[in-house]
Amino acid sequence: MILAAAALAVASTCTPGAADRAWIDGAMAAWRLELRRVPALKRPPKVTVILFDARCRLESRTALQTNGKAAWSATRHGGQVLLADGTRIPAKVTSFAGEGKAGGTTFVMALPSVWAAGKIPAGQLGLDKLTKAVLLHEASHVSQTILVRRVGKLASEKGLPEDFNDDSVQDRFEKEPAFAASVEKETGLLFAAAAAGDDATARDLARQALASMQARRLRWFVGRDERLREAEDLFLSMEGAGQYVGYSWLIDPEGGQTPRAEAMAGFGKRSRWWSQKQGLALVLAVERLGLPGWQTQLWQSPRLIGSQLLQAALAR
């Protein structure tokens, strides 16, 4: 059965609830708005989108590419959601994007009703806004093909484990008090730099953050852990870009219409994961410092990644 995004309410043995149907339309509109707002964010040439609630699995190969109404197929999943590569996952709260085995990219996300059933706290933002920001974060990764492939290449060249991901640095060092304290300090300095009222203060705070990052890496990324240097920068670019898109939509007058402080507390600083929080702080600081072409570096031609972007911005 093929359904138009705005017509998911047609008679069906497997149709999401009205709230989820409205959310799909709103989320796709949010994606199209961010494509206009962030020029370097491009539609992927090929991506399979899979959304699901407690009963239904929806699939579209046009949802993130079209300006009009996307075509969706709807089927029952029986508690196990079929992915594009033939594997299945439980119909529980999740959101992720990745390279498909058969080529192209897959984007998978549980609909808000699943999040509500899972009692995921949404805070002041509310579940509708939070889940749309999460979708935008993950959808932005589909435009980062080069960075995604660099992660795979690094893992292969450095012998990183198969489950290596954006949280692996944190998993390795979270219980090292000095390392964790340095990450928290750097992140705070970067957020402060991004919010600074004058250029001199912004640059001074950003310099302090960069010096702390460099000192931390010299101390801890040694021996077998030296291979984590590039990995940390890759994931700062990837996760920072994703958080930036979600946060930008939240504060957009035509998007989430959320006050900056509320969007930052409810989304920007909400995550417990270092790569997301420090990544956003770094991207916002680079934007504040006015590095030319910084968006292109994040989504299209990532010659500079992570802290290299900050270093380039300060070198101007």
Rank of each mutant, 00 (worst) to 15 (best):
F179P: 02
M1F: 03
K101D: 15
A195R: 11
A11K: 07
L236S: 03
S60A: 11
L298F: 04
E230W: 00
P292Y: 00
D20H: 09
E59T: 12
R288C: 03
R88D: 02
G268K: 01
P39M: 04
A84V: 11
L250V: 00
P44N: 13
A200G: 04
E239W: 08
L291D: 01
D225Q: 06
S248F: 05
P16R: 03
P44E: 11
S95T: 15
A6Q: 00
I50L: 09
W294Q: 01
L210Y: 12
Q308H: 09
P16H: 05
F221T: 01
P177C: 10
Y244V: 03
R32K: 14
L314A: 08
K101P: 06
W31A: 12
F191Q: 11
A70M: 04
R217H: 12
T75I: 01
T13R: 14
Q243V: 01
A313E: 03
P121C: 08
A91W: 04
L190M: 06
F267L: 00
W274D: 07
V10M: 08
A40E: 13
A215E: 15
Q311M: 01
Y247Q: 03
A11E: 12
G152L: 04
A139D: 12
V47N: 15
D25T: 02
R288M: 05
Y247L: 01
A110F: 06
K277R: 10
A7K: 04
A6V: 00
I251V: 08
R21W: 02
L160G: 11
Q124I: 07
W72H: 00
L236M: 04
A18F: 05
G78Y: 06
A312E: 03
A202T: 11
A155M: 09
F179Y: 09
A63C: 10
G293D: 04
K119Y: 06
V151D: 13
E230P: 00
R260I: 05
L58Q: 02
E184V: 01
T48N: 12
S307E: 11
S182P: 07
E226D: 12
A192G: 13
A27H: 02
V10Q: 08
L250D: 01
G123P: 14
R270G: 03
W31K: 11
R216D: 09
S275A: 06
A180Q: 08
D85P: 10
A181Q: 08
R203E: 01
D163T: 15
W220C: 09
T94I: 06
R229M: 08
K42V: 14
